[in-house]
């Protein structure tokens, strides 16, 4: 018995899938905006796409945040033609390490810790993962330590600003589940 050509294979997109897809699309656009903005130091970026990761985390759960974050890394790399380049691996390392920190952080009391906390934690996760990969693989020298303060200051500012933006957006997006 062989499957006949007329048999249709259908993929059913659940409402959650659609929401993840649209948030990912939004994150990819913001990642492109990020890449287009001029920066004083390569690697220092506003990280606007992280706002979308936070929105996904708050409204759709941690699994959705992982999807949105990784789809963004993949989609942005495809669109910018940086697939499998060092830049791609740096952004993947940043995304993975920030997700690893967000996993425990998202269990913190929501009453005490808001989006600003999570955004700061994610921002530091990003630079931590990127610097670690850069030190181990791309620039195996302690000379890289000289740039660490610049990245840390950038993460402090972008983490706070992105967190505040995410908090404002979450206010407008009621938490009624999909």
């Amino acid at each position: 018995m062989t499957a006949s050509a007329s048999e249709r294979l259908t993929l059913v997109a659940r409402p959650l899938d659609r929401q993840v897809a649209s948030l990912s699309a939004l994150a990819i656009v913001l990642a492109l905006v990020d890449a287009a903005l001029p920066t004083p130091l390569p690697g220092v970026k506003p990280g606007l796409a992280n706002i979308v990761t936070l929105l996904a985390l708050y409204r759709l759960g941690f699994a959705a945040a992982v999807w949105v974050s990784l789809l963004r890394v993949l989609g942005a790399a495809l669109l910018m033609g940086s697939m499998l380049t060092p830049g791609f691996f740096l952004s993947l390392a940043g995304a993975l390490s920030s997700l690893m920190l967000l996993a425990p952080a998202s269990r913190l009391s929501r009453r005490l810790f808001g989006p600003v906390s999570l955004s700061l934690i994610a921002a530091y996760g990003h630079i931590g993962g990127q610097l670690l990969l850069a030190r181990l693989w791309l620039i195996p020298s302690d000379g890289i330590l000289y740039f660490v303060p610049a990245f840390a200051l950038a993460a402090l500012i972008t983490g706070t600003v992105n967190g505040l933006l995410a908090a404002r957006l979450l206010r407008r997006w009621p938490s009624s589940k999909h």
């Binding site: 913190l108 009391s109 009453r111 005490l112 810790f113 808001g114 600003v116 906390s117 700061l120 934690i121 530091y124 993460a155 402090l156 983490g159 706070t160 967190g163 505040l164 908090a167 404002r168 979450l170 206010r171």
Partner: peptide, 15 residues
């Protein structure tokens, strides 16, 4: 929902 919660200030200070 408040924009900034008490824990946020602590996390910011730590950062």
């Amino acid at each position: 929902m408040r924009l900034i919660r008490p824990g946020d200030v602590a996390v910011f200070t730590l950062a």
